[in-house]
Computed example of a mutant assay.
Amino acid sequence: MTEEEAQASVGVLVEDDTGRRGTLREAGDWTDPSTGKTEFVVFVGPVGGGREWTTSPAALHRLERTQ
């Protein structure tokens, strides 16, 4: 998924390269406060609740609602 696709896919069910599934919650630039490094990341909330995670948009693909 590209950065533009990620921004347009907020609220969509996605799966990452490791098989984790969740709802794409946010996509955009994020600055690590410990290093000052800024990168584009996506925030994904797991299906059924749990700890949100971040990843690169390239690691995600959209899932159909039936899955």
Rank of each mutant, 00 (worst) to 15 (best):
M1R: 05
M1I: 14
M1Q: 09
M1L: 14
T2K: 11
T2W: 14
T2P: 14
E3A: 09
E3L: 00
E3H: 07
E4N: 10
E4A: 14
E4P: 10
E5G: 04
E5Q: 14
A6Q: 02
A6L: 07
Q7H: 05
Q7S: 08
S9F: 03
V10Y: 06
G11K: 14
G11H: 05
V12A: 11
V12D: 01
L13I: 03
L13M: 12
V14T: 03
V14R: 02
V14F: 00
E15V: 15
D16Q: 03
D16F: 02
D16A: 01
D17F: 05
D17W: 03
D17I: 06
D17E: 10
T18H: 07
T18C: 03
T18S: 10
G19L: 06
R21I: 02
G22V: 11
G22E: 07
G22F: 00
G22M: 13
T23S: 11
T23R: 15
T23P: 05
L24G: 13
L24F: 05
R25P: 12
R25N: 06
E26H: 15
E26T: 11
E26L: 11
E26Y: 08
G28C: 05
G28Y: 03
D29A: 15
D29V: 00
D29G: 04
W30E: 13
W30G: 08
T31M: 08
T31E: 14
T31L: 04
T31N: 06
T31A: 06
D32T: 08
D32I: 03
D32P: 01
P33A: 05
G36M: 11
G36Q: 11
T38D: 09
F40M: 04
F40W: 07
V41L: 05
V41P: 03
V42H: 03
V42Q: 00
V42M: 00
V42T: 01
F43K: 14
V44L: 01
V44W: 01
G45T: 15
G45P: 00
G45V: 12
G45H: 11
P46W: 10
P46N: 04
V47Q: 07
V47M: 13
V47N: 05
G48V: 13
G48Y: 07
G50M: 11
W53S: 07
T54I: 15
T54R: 09
T54E: 02
T55S: 07
S56M: 06
P57H: 09
P57L: 07
P57G: 00
P57K: 05
A59V: 10
A59N: 14
L60S: 06
H61G: 04
R62V: 14
R62N: 04
R62G: 12
L63A: 04
E64D: 13
E64F: 10
T66P: 06
T66V: 02
Q67G: 13
